[in-house]
């Protein structure tokens, strides 16, 4: 009887190990449980200039949806490499769990590559999008369907080898 009181640390450790072991099995690169292949969730939010934005803003254009935060220093490194503008493709920013002044300061400093920027202060939209962490980038097609998702910063190599070919394929050759 006495011993049972002291078993909880062991139980907690085993729980922790199971948990960590379990996350090995989830293949995060495999985009399962994310929105890839599914329509973009419906949203209605104010952007930085307090203009309402809905899902319609994504229709008819190829969109690169960038999720980041000013408190994330991986983002800092990613942003130092800049964002390439491609004709016919709009960049949309979503600031994850952040405040407006921080984001405005950030965009003023580094330039604003975005058509518009949404504040996702509570992380609700990110939750629906299956965002694991910041930074993340989603590619959304003209019918507002998510076609690809890249976790982590887009290094120049990743941009050249993974993102750009996919963007070009969906733009069609007549545009570029």
């Amino acid at each position: 009887m006495q011993a049972k009181r002291y078993i909880w640390p062991l139980a907690m450790l085993l729980g922790l190990i199971c948990m960590l072991g379990n996350s090995f099995q989830i293949d995060r690169r495999g985009n399962e449980a994310t929105q890839v292949g599914k329509p973009f969730p419906v949203f209605s939010q104010l952007d930085l200039e307090n203009k309402p934005k809905q899902k319609q803003a994504l229709m008819g254009k190829l969109t690169l949806w960038h999720v980041w935060a000013s408190w994330c220093h991986t983002c800092e490194i990613e942003w130092s490499q800049g964002f390439e503008k491609i004709p016919g493709v709009q960049w949309v920013g979503m600031a994850y769990q952040d405040t407006k002044p921080h984001i405005q300061m950030w965009l003023k400093a580094r330039g604003d590559p975005f058509a518009f920027t949404l504040m996702d202060a509570k992380g609700n939209l990110a939750f629906q999008l299956g965002v694991i962490g910041v930074p993340e980038t989603l590619l959304i097609d003209q019918n507002a369907k998510v076609i690809a998702k890249w976790d982590g910063p887009l290094s120049p190599q990743r941009w050249q080898q993974q993102v750009l070919p996919m963007v070009k394929a969906h733009l069609g050759e007549n545009v570029i």
Binding site: P9, L10, L13, L14, I17, L20, G21, S23, F24, I26, D27, R28, R29, T74, I132, G133, D151, G152
Partner: peptide, 27 residues
């Protein structure tokens, strides 16, 4: 970061194994 979690599953299993052996043994 959570991103690179499964970067090398083989290594991860080793680490968990070590923590499991030393931790569970002592606890």
């Amino acid at each position: 970061s959570v991103h690179s979690f499964a970067a090398d599953p083989h290594r991860g299993v080793w680490i968990l194994g070590l923590i499991g052996v030393y931790g569970a043994g002592a606890l």
